[in-house]
């Protein structure tokens, strides 16, 4: 598992993490989220190809499928927030606290 794969996937993962943590719009955060998941899938795939163990590919594929399902739900929620008249930003989701 060469260092190149790890440095790339780590960088991408941190990029996605930053996207989720720092952005205010929900959609931007969602993109960050998807980036993180796909980076993991990428890492799995590359590792599998390098080590020749087929399991990694199976895992990557399944991860993609599950991520897709998750994405659907995420988008639905963001749309519901928009349709309820609030801007799709973290600031509008402040009522529950304490």
């Amino acid at each position: 598992m060469s260092g190149v794969v790890w440095s790339v996937s780590a960088a991408l993962f941190l990029l996605g993490l930053a996207g989720v943590a720092l952005r205010r719009q929900l959609l931007a955060m969602f993109l960050g989220l998807e980036l993180m998941v796909l980076t993991a899938a990428l890492a799995l795939g590359c590792t599998a190809s390098l080590s020749g163990r087929g399991e990694g590919f199976v895992a990557a594929l399944l991860v993609l499928a599950v991520a897709a399902a998750e994405a659907v739900v995420g988008l639905v929620l963001i749309l519901r927030v928009r349709s309820s008249g609030r801007p799709a930003e973290t600031q509008s989701l402040r009522e529950l606290k304490g």
Partner: peptide, 21 residues
Amino acid sequence: YFFAGGTASAIYLMGMALHFG
């Protein structure tokens, strides 16, 4: 819940990848 859960799942996947590596 979605965003927190999603992040956690992503973190889990990264852990799985590391483990697989």
